[in-house]
Computed example of a mutant assay.
Amino acid sequence: MKNKARSGRTALMSAAARAAHLLVDEAPAIFTDPLARTFLGEQAEELLHYHRAYGGHPVLAGARTTAVARSRYTEDRLAELTGRGVDQYVILGAGLDSFAYRSEQAGRVRVFEVDEPAAQRWKRALLAETGTEAPPSVSFVPVDFEEESDGSLTDRLVQAGFAPDRPALVGWLGVTMYLTPEAIRRTLAAVGGFAPGTELIAEHLLPAGLRDEAGQAYAEAVMAAAAEQGEPWRTLLGTEEMDALLTGQGLRPVEYVRQRDTVAPAEWERTDALRPFELSVLARAVVPER
């Protein structure tokens, strides 16, 4: 099935990177997503062929590194928070995220998948085609980040069963670079209004001057391809700019996590092509007590 949503190609590339990690890279895996290949549908063989044949290419290896590092960090953090009683997980720009359908943690949290309406229709059709059952713990929340007004994200989440008076983890991976600054601000303002103790993990891409050589080469290749496919990078943020955005919307920054810091240093001692590089940062912030 072909995706008609703007975010479809990006979602497919991310899922292909997660799937290929288990096929191309050495064990132990940094992140294990056994459903990623299933979620590629009829395009699985085509997309995975490139990783199998050219897995050492910097762009393909970089895509795998980015996808598995950010997912590992976020789900590790979710596991820690659920151990403390947090039982809500909001995935902004969920794409082909498979957490709700494969993780043992999924039974302990209510999962809210937020994405463009067309992207969600595509994903739900794909779930049906692949015989993947959506558990009762997952809710689909259709939102166009560019079109939503202030407060409407929260309203839509509440309509789907989200409890705004209880803390949550909010994951926002692989999305902000495709949005305008105003759409990012509105979304952060909504999260800043969630219950105290809520955590946000938001990935943002660094501007050219803050990337290393590998990050710059990756960006030059991928940015052009993304623009050609109708998904241009719109917003690149340094940590100081992200810090100002977060604090301006009621969030308290806790840390900015580079790729190399998403896992223990020993896990980067590898003989495959995965290497951390300076392209993106995971900003972790909390909603403080009011």
Rank of each mutant, 00 (worst) to 15 (best):
Ala53Arg: 13
Gln259Val: 13
Leu127Cys: 02
Arg166Leu: 10
Pro181Ala: 04
Pro58His: 14
Leu245Ser: 00
Leu127Tyr: 10
Leu237Pro: 12
Glu228Tyr: 04
Phe145His: 05
Ala16Asn: 05
Leu40Arg: 01
Leu245Asn: 02
Leu47Glu: 08
Ser137Asp: 04
His49Trp: 14
Arg290His: 15
Lys123Met: 06
Leu188Asn: 13
Glu45Ser: 05
Thr262Lys: 02
Gln259Leu: 15
Gly95His: 00
Tyr101Trp: 15
Thr198Val: 00
Ala5Asn: 03
Thr38Ile: 11
Ala217Asn: 06
Asp76Arg: 03
Ala189Leu: 10
Leu92Trp: 09
Gly151Trp: 03
Gly107Leu: 07
Val286Trp: 08
Glu26Pro: 11
Met13Ile: 02
Glu146Cys: 07
Gly8Glu: 10
Asp272Cys: 07
Leu126Pro: 11
Pro253Phe: 07
Glu255Met: 02
Tyr256Ala: 05
Gly161Trp: 12
Gly230Cys: 06
Asp115Asn: 05
Val114Gln: 08
Arg258Cys: 06
Phe31Val: 00
Ser98His: 12
Leu237Ala: 08
Lys2Met: 15
Glu231Val: 05
Asp272Ala: 05
Ala36Tyr: 11
Leu81Trp: 15
Ala224Leu: 00
Arg156Val: 04
Lys4Trp: 09
Asp87Ile: 03
Thr180Asn: 12
Ala283Pro: 12
Gly41Glu: 08
Leu246Met: 07
Gly83Asn: 08
Glu116Arg: 15
Ala27Cys: 10
Gly193Glu: 14
Leu210Asn: 08
Leu127Asn: 09
Arg102Lys: 14
Leu179Trp: 07
Thr10His: 07
Thr262Arg: 04
Ala264Phe: 04
Phe194Val: 13
Glu147Cys: 05
Thr74Lys: 00
Ile30Val: 13
Arg234Thr: 12
Ala125Tyr: 03
Gly174Asn: 02
Pro34Asp: 07
Arg156Thr: 12
Ala20Phe: 00
Glu75Arg: 02
Pro207Gln: 05
Leu92Ser: 08
Pro34Thr: 00
Arg70Ile: 10
Glu45Ile: 04
Ile201Pro: 08
Pro265Ala: 03
Glu203Arg: 12
Leu81Pro: 02
Glu220Ile: 01
Met223Ile: 07
Gly215Leu: 06
